[in-house]
Simulated scan of single mutants.
Amino acid sequence: MTKQRRSFTPEFKREAAGLVLDQSYSYIEAARSLGLVESALRRWVKQLQEERQGVTPKSKALTPEQQKIQEL
């Protein structure tokens, strides 16, 4: 039996990363409370930090501003 891969919306990823960046959760606390693996949360936090600095991501954007830039 193979485990089905879960997918998350950009909004969920942004909120999850926000727990670490804005609400001072540790990576472990946030990941456990949301049922995530820590490595995924670390990627999302890194991406959100970069987007907040104005870097357009190669993957699907998390912030509404970067999403709009990608659409254009």
Rank of each mutant, 00 (worst) to 15 (best):
S24P: 07
E11D: 07
P64T: 02
R6D: 15
G54D: 12
R43H: 07
Q66S: 04
E11M: 06
V37F: 15
T9C: 06
E51N: 00
D22C: 12
V55F: 08
L19N: 08
I69H: 04
E11Q: 08
Q49K: 10
A31Q: 04
G35F: 11
R32M: 08
K68D: 02
A31R: 14
T2Q: 07
L36R: 15
R42V: 06
T63M: 00
A40G: 11
Y27V: 10
D22F: 13
F12L: 03
E29R: 15
Q70P: 01
Q4E: 13
I28A: 08
L34A: 11
M1A: 15
S59I: 00
Y25R: 15
A40K: 12
T2G: 12
Q49D: 05
I69K: 09
E50R: 15
L48M: 03
M1I: 08
K46Y: 05
L34N: 15
E11N: 05
F12E: 04
I69P: 02
S26I: 02
E51L: 01
K60Y: 04
A30L: 14
K46V: 03
L34S: 14
S33M: 12
E50Y: 14
Q67T: 11
A16P: 12
E15Y: 08
F8T: 14
V45F: 04
T2W: 04
L21P: 04
P64G: 08
A17E: 07
S33D: 15
Q70Y: 07
A31V: 10
Q4A: 15
R6L: 14
I28S: 07
Q53H: 08
T56E: 07
L36S: 08
Q66K: 06
K46L: 02
S39W: 07
A61Q: 12
R6H: 14
T9F: 08
R43M: 15
R52P: 00
K60V: 01
S26L: 01
L19C: 11
S7N: 13
E71Q: 14
A31M: 08
T9S: 13
L62I: 01
T9N: 11
I28R: 06
R5N: 07
R5V: 04
R6W: 15
P10F: 00
L48I: 09
S33V: 09
S7M: 06
L36C: 11
L62W: 01
I69G: 07
E65Y: 00
T63Y: 00
L48C: 07
E71S: 13
P10Y: 03
